[in-house]
Design a binder for these strands. Structure first.
Length: 284
DNA sequence: CGTTCAACCTGGGCGC
DNA sequence: TGCGCCCAGGTTGAAC
């Protein structure tokens, strides 16, 4: 679920908890936990977090990082169905962590995760510097320059959609936004990176910026299963602006021809085969 | 270097 | 109603 716009919406919604002291930590869905979810164990997590003061909320790609008055930070990776809430949860049986604050007028922070594929880790500054090294996680999609984008992806023979999903190249783009970005740039998802013309890199960079910014403004995409919610437990609005994602068989907004669905790297890709042709490709 | 598959999980939707 | 499939915003590691 959460890609850059959804995680950025979470970050913004959590800014109001900066300055608060942690009063208690609990794990309501303890019976449903898989072992990989927490590092360290829930018990150790509880004792290490108790009475720390939150000093900042950051986003690294699709992760939320909560900083404290200590040399460790809480790193939350929501993966498919993870959410951070400062409001009542859609289904309390999926609340994985609840953090209460000294100021009891603030709603507890809840980490909610229906499928439970996400992770919650307390990491030292040193460990984070290794984990979030630029070889493992590329520049943020909102900050990367057009030149850097071409420089980092342009030599690869992989299809451009597959490259956009690889967080080592640039970070934050996921399956929904990759299809939407390529549609607006009118670039075919199967186009090999190393055959894209210079003008294509400019179009792609421009499309990344405009799609992500518009999606953040609308607080992300809530699909029909309504899994994604903002920290205030509200739906996002960008799903109404999707042009291709989940729209196979419907008419293209631009040319009216049917949108296609196909699979790349085990993920569904959506595209208009007419608008997204191979005209931005260098001939072999 | 690039691709494919399986695994980690829950739950909604569909055909029969 | 119920069963068996398929599908889903992500990531990782192994195998070819």
């Amino acid at each position: 679920m959460p890609e850059l716009p959804e995680v950025e919406t979470m970050r913004r919604g959590l800014e109001k908890i900066v300055g608060l002291r942690i009063h208690s930590v609990s794990f309501p869905a303890a019976k449903r936990l898989r072992s990989l979810l927490f590092k360290p164990s829930p018990q150790r997590l509880k004792t290490r977090l108790l009475s720390l003061v939150i000093t900042g909320i950051r986003r690294i790609g699709k992760r939320i990082v909560i900083d404290f008055n200590s040399d460790e930070s809480l790193v939350i990776e929501p993966r498919m169905t993870g959410l951070l809430l400062l409001a009542n949860s859609p289904s309390p049986e999926h609340n994985r962590v609840e953090i209460c604050f000294d100021d009891s007028s603030i709603h507890p922070l809840i980490y909610w995760d229906r499928r439970g594929l996400g992770t919650v880790q307390l990491l030292s500054v040193h460990t984070m510097s290794i984990l979030f090294n630029s070889n493992r996680i590329g520049p943020d999609a909102l900050l990367i320059t057009a030149e850097d984008l071409q420089c980092r992806l342009g030599r690869s023979r992989r299809p451009v959609k597959v490259a956009l999903l690889d967080q080592r190249g640039l970070s934050g783009i996921g399956n929904i936004y990759a299809s939407e970005i390529l549609f607006r740039a009118q670039i075919h998802p199967r186009a090999p990176c190393n055959r894209l013309l210079p003008q294509a890199w400019g179009r792609l960079h421009e499309s990344i910026q405009s799609v992500l910014r518009e999606a953040i403004q609308l607080k992300g995409s809530t699909l029909s299963d309504a899994t994604y919610r903002t920290p205030q437990n509200r739906s996002g609005g960008f799903q109404f602006h999707h042009r291709v994602y989940g729209k196979q068989g419907t008419s293209c907004f631009v040319c009216g021809n049917p949108i296609e669905r196909f699979v790349q790297a085990q993920r569904a890709t959506f595209a208009c085969p007419t608008c997204q042709n191979m005209r931005f490709l260098r001939k072999l």
